[in-house]
Every structure is written in C-alpha cells, then in structure tokens.
Simulated assay, not measured.
Amino acid sequence: MTRVGKTRRALRGLRGLRGLLTGLCGAALAVAGTAPSQAAPGPRPAWEARDSGTDARFRGLAAVSRSTAWVAGTKGTVLLTRDAGRSWRNVSPPGAGALEFRDVEAFDARRAVVLAIGDGDASRVLRTDDGGRTWTETFRNPDPRAFYDCMTFFDTRHGIALGDPVDGRYRVLATGDGGRSWRVLPPDGMPAALPGEAAFAASGQCLVSSGRRDAWIATGGAATSRVLHSADRGRTWTVTGTPVPAGDPARGVFALAFRDRTHGLAVGGDYRPGQPSERAAARSADGGTTWTAAGSPPPAYRSGVTWLPHSRTTAVAVGPTGSDITTDGGRTWRGFDTGSYDTTACAPDGGCWAAGEKGRAARLMGTPH
C-alpha cells in the first residue's frame, strides 16, 4: 500500500509528536506536582525522579529489575542504569545521532535490542551483548515503503517487530536468535489493514506479548481502532474492534498490556494537544477477542500502560498530561500525577519505571498491594 502523503506518514510514525507536545506539562519529575483526582485508601502512588543527565525524549523503556533499566530515545540515545536510577550510563551506539529509537527490549543488564523508526533504511535494529559497550546492526530496512514501529520478545531467542501496512497488510519481522538476525514473515496470515490504518510508535507498546507465543498489535488511524492477536508468534492473526475512538490519523489505540494471555488493557485517544480523548481506555478478559470501555477512563490521551507485577487488578497508564492508576483491572482509572511521560514498564521483581520528554525517568513508589 502506498502512503497517502507526508502529513499522514508523519502522524503514523509520530515523528512530529515531539514538537507538538514540547510545550505540554513542564512539571518536574518529582512527587511535587502530583494531583490525585480522588482520595484512595492505602499507599498513594508517586513517580520519584531519577535524573538521566540528558534532554533526549525517551519512548523506549525496558525494566529489567528494581535496580536495572534501559531507556532509548531521540538523537540515537540509549542509557542504562544498574543502581535504581541514581546514575545512568550513556551507552548510545556510535554514529547513531540521526536515529530515532522508539523501542528497547532487554533481557538483562548486558543484552538489549533497540529499534529505530523511519521510512526505508531509517528503520533499523541494533543489539548489544556487553551492556552497550559495543553494538551490532542486525537489520536495516531495505523497502522504502516500510516503516517499523515497535517490537516484542517472547523469550531470549524469539521475537517479532511490527511495521505499518505494505501492500495492504502489516509487515512483521521475526527473529529466532535473540535479534541477531531477522526475516520478514509471509503476509498470508495477516488480515487486510483498513484504509488509513497504522500503528503508533509512541511508547514501544503498539506490539506486546505474553508468554511464549501470544502477541497483540494496537492500531488506529482508520474508521475504528482494532487489536490483532497472534497465538503462533506472528504467523497468523485474528482481529477485533475496540471502543477506543479512531476515525482520524491521530486517534486510536496507542498501547497495550497483557498480564497473561487472557487479561489485557488498551489505552490511547487523540495525541494532539487540546483534543478530547473520550473512552481512552478499554479492557479485555478473553485474550483480546472482545473489548469493553472503561467506566471511568483516564481524562486524556495516554501512550503507555503496564500491569504491576504480582497483582491481578492494578496497572498504571501514562501520557504527556499525566498518569493514572487502576486497582480494579481497568474498569476505572484515577489520576495520581500531572507530569509528562510517554512510556512505562514494570520488571518481574516489582520495579516499575516511566520515561518521557526532556530526559525524564522515574521509579514508581508507594503502590497499593
């Protein structure tokens, strides 16, 4: 499928989002500035700032543990902390200053894979096995029609990366060796894309997985927002609509989170400043086959979402105008912070992180059990 113009292409990749949102929410990444909309019993969550020492905008985030996290963003920037964010090491790939990193997937403090977005050969994948001391480029997109948005791994070997539709179908890359090599999967098992449909490279969460084989894709830009599901590591897909409004290149589902292969959350809205984002969240209890709108959704566009480990009901969503928490599995959300974040992730040991514009990085404190 050919692109419908530079403007829509930019919207799909969110390359212009940084400029549109630069003026939003200059609040510092500190507990000061939080504004819960409703009091709640028990501990109140708060983001605790972790100075990254850079002004890059981070949309890629990999939470390895309470102490270890990777972030990736603009100007080819990749940072690593191994001391809970007290210090960050700049491990950016040499010569990558022109690349826009939008996703990072990490297996531990040494092994990580980063995805750069863009038309044609601007879309690339790089991998490190030594904590970012050296990097190897393992994929450079040869097709000028293709534009890659996000990626996910099922285990330390198997992963997939998602590209916007080409010839009417989403393009999926697959790796079986931890991101050292990639191949384009046959398009036969992919449902046809809707006119104008695309994924959003906003937080590294337009493609997510749970377990060793299940993956989901979030879409927008078309008449309706949809979620695609694969139970075989991306070879075949089914698709269903969601109640999150679309109908415009700037609206749809931006991020997904599944705490297992059954229970999922979707967040999104309209990323343009000042535009309403009704029904900006939905939930699924059947693996993404059906979706129900949140009864009390976040009040504005949200670009990232994550389940808290060891909880069946608690999750956090973030966006450029604030953060929200649900303690009832996505039925209702309440705000707890007004700072600007683009992405969020939790590690298996319970360490939860967020990252965003102007080098912002933070850890989540005081969450309910």
Rank of each mutant, 00 (worst) to 15 (best):
Met1Arg: 06
Leu14Gly: 00
Leu17Trp: 04
Leu20Met: 10
Leu20Ala: 10
Ala28Tyr: 10
Ser37His: 11
Asp55Ser: 15
Arg57Asp: 14
Ala72His: 01
Ala72Arg: 00
Thr74Phe: 00
Thr77Gly: 09
Leu80Lys: 12
Leu80Ile: 12
Arg82Asp: 15
Asp83Gln: 02
Val104Trp: 05
Phe107Thr: 11
Phe107Asn: 10
Ala116Ile: 08
Gly120Phe: 02
Arg124Asp: 06
Arg124Pro: 09
Asp129Gln: 14
Glu137Gln: 11
Pro142Arg: 07
Pro142Ile: 02
Ala146Thr: 01
Phe147Lys: 01
Phe154Ser: 14
Gly163Trp: 01
Ala174Pro: 01
Ala174Met: 07
Pro191Val: 01
Ala192Asn: 08
Ala199Lys: 00
Ser210His: 14
Gly211Glu: 11
Arg213Asn: 14
Ala215Ser: 03
Leu228Asp: 04
Asp232Tyr: 07
Val239Gly: 01
Leu265Trp: 04
Leu265Ala: 03
Ala266Pro: 08
Val267Lys: 01
Ala280Cys: 12
Ala282Asp: 08
Ser303Met: 08
Gly304His: 13
Leu308Gln: 07
His310Asp: 09
Ala315His: 03
Thr327Ala: 14
Arg331Gln: 06
Thr332Cys: 15
Thr344Asp: 09
Thr344Asn: 11
Asp349Thr: 07
Asp349Phe: 11
Cys352Pro: 04
Glu357Asp: 13
